[in-house]
């Protein structure tokens, strides 16, 4: 298992078995099968369950929703939110939307690359962090912005990122212990 993080909306601490994950995936597919616009919610939930979108999951969604595989792949590859590669425990997204870009998003991204020792789209060897670029969180007034997991950090300075990461890890550890 790549993560000991709770999967999806499940609050148990034990990682779900492959059979259990598949059962839940099938439930979601059944729920959305005949709903227009059901593909993106299914992909989001599936990524929540598995941490990313493994190929066999993508195939199952394509066949289950009766959506062409090429179309499903087209949607997955269009949105930077979706990933077909395993990801780390924590997701770092650096916004390079227009406002963040002009206010130094690129330097923030470079700082994260250096700090984590990985390139965009990669995961650290200890599977702790994955680094990605995002296009606008809607926080342009607070640019440059980043998110770590679901937390938005504003007016990020390249010199502060080590501190931000440490605080986030602390908070995560507390949340896990609680």
């Amino acid at each position: 298992m790549l993560t000991d993080k709770p999967a999806g909306d499940c609050h148990c601490t034990e990682p779900a078995s492959p059979e259990e994950l598949r059962r839940r995936l099938d439930e979601i597919i059944t729920e959305y099968k005949d709903k227009p616009g059901g593909l993106i919610p299914v992909l989001q939930i599936a990524q929540g369950l598995y941490g990313y979108l493994p190929d066999e999951v993508v195939r199952r969604i394509s066949l289950g929703l009766d959506k062409p595989y090429s179309e499903v792949a087209g949607v997955i590859t269009f949105y930077s939110f979706f990933s077909t590669r395993p990801r780390g425990e924590h997701m770092v997204r650096v916004c390079l939307g227009t406002a963040c870009y002009v206010r130094g998003g690129k330097q923030v991204l470079d700082a994260f690359k250096k700090e984590l020792g990985i390139d965009v789209g990669e995961t650290t060897a200890d599977r702790k962090y994955t680094l990605e670029v995002a296009r606008c969180f809607g926080a342009c007034g607070l640019a440059p912005a980043i998110t770590i997991d679901d937390v938005v950090h504003q007016r990020v300075k390249p010199t502060k990122i080590r501190e931000i990461l440490a605080k986030h890890m602390q908070a995560a550890a507390v949340a896990k212990g609680a």
Binding site: V58, P68, Y69, S70, E71, V72, A73, G74, T77, F78, S80, T84
Partner: peptide, 20 residues
């Protein structure tokens, strides 16, 4: 009604092709 081809990826990296 076949949809073997679809735009993959985004922006400059867009490729029209089969899945991935």
């Amino acid at each position: 009604g076949v949809t073997a081809l679809f735009p993959q990826y985004r922006g400059f990296k867009t490729v029209v092709g089969p899945a991935f």
